[in-house]
Simulated scan of single mutants.
Amino acid sequence: MFCGYHAAGLCGSCTAIDRPYAEQLSAKHIHAQQLLDDADLEWLEPVASPESGYRNKAKMVVTGTAAAPRLGILGAPDPALASGGVDLRGCGVNAPELRAAMPVLADFITRAALTPYDVHARRGELKHLLVTVGSGGALMIRFVLRSTESLVRIEKHLGWLRGELPQAAVVSVNLQPEHKAVLEGEREIVLTQQQSLPVVMGEVELQVLPKSFLQTNTDVASALYRQGAAWIEEAAPAKVWDLYCGVGGFALHAAAHVSDPGREVTGIEISAEAVAAAERARDAAGLRATFHVGDATAFAAQAEALPDLMIVNPPRRGLGRELAGWLEDSGVRQVLYSSCNATSLARDLAAMPSLRPTRAQVLDMFPQTSHYEVLTLLRRH
Rank of each mutant, 00 (worst) to 15 (best):
Y5K: 11
H6L: 15
L10V: 07
C11V: 14
T15A: 13
I17A: 03
R19M: 02
A22S: 13
Q24A: 03
S26H: 00
I30N: 08
H31N: 15
A32L: 02
D38H: 11
L41I: 11
W43R: 10
L44C: 00
V47K: 03
V47I: 15
S52L: 12
G53R: 06
K57V: 12
M60D: 07
V61M: 14
V62D: 04
A67N: 06
R70N: 00
L71K: 05
I73A: 13
A76S: 15
A76F: 06
P79T: 08
S83K: 13
L88C: 15
G92D: 06
V93I: 15
N94V: 11
E97D: 13
R99T: 02
A100L: 09
A101N: 09
A101C: 05
V104H: 08
T110P: 00
A112G: 10
A113Q: 15
L114S: 11
Y117F: 15
D118F: 06
G124T: 08
L126Q: 03
L126F: 01
H128R: 01
H128F: 14
V133Q: 08
G134H: 11
S135I: 10
A138I: 09
R146I: 01
S150H: 11
V152N: 15
K156T: 14
H157V: 06
W160P: 05
R162D: 10
G163T: 09
G163F: 00
L165H: 12
S172G: 12
V173M: 03
A181D: 15
G185F: 01
R187E: 15
I189A: 09
S196G: 14
V204E: 07
E205Y: 07
E205F: 07
F213Q: 00
L214V: 11
L214S: 01
Q215M: 04
T216C: 10
T216K: 04
V220D: 00
S222E: 10
L224W: 05
A230H: 10
I232W: 05
L243H: 13
G249V: 02
L252F: 03
A254H: 11
A255L: 03
A256W: 04
V258R: 12
D260W: 02
P261W: 07
P261T: 04
G262M: 12
G262R: 14
G267S: 07
I268S: 06
E269P: 09
E273N: 02
V275Q: 04
D283Q: 14
R288S: 15
A289T: 07
D295C: 10
T297E: 10
F299P: 02
A300I: 03
E304G: 00
L306R: 14
P307F: 03
P307V: 12
P307N: 08
D308C: 07
N313M: 07
P315C: 05
R316V: 04
G318L: 00
L323R: 03
A324P: 04
G325R: 03
G325D: 00
W326E: 02
W326Y: 13
W326N: 08
E328H: 05
Q334K: 10
L336A: 01
Y337K: 02
S339Q: 04
S339E: 13
A342C: 14
S354F: 05
R356L: 08
T358L: 12
R359L: 10
D364Q: 06
D364I: 01
H371I: 04
Y372S: 11
E373P: 09
R380S: 06
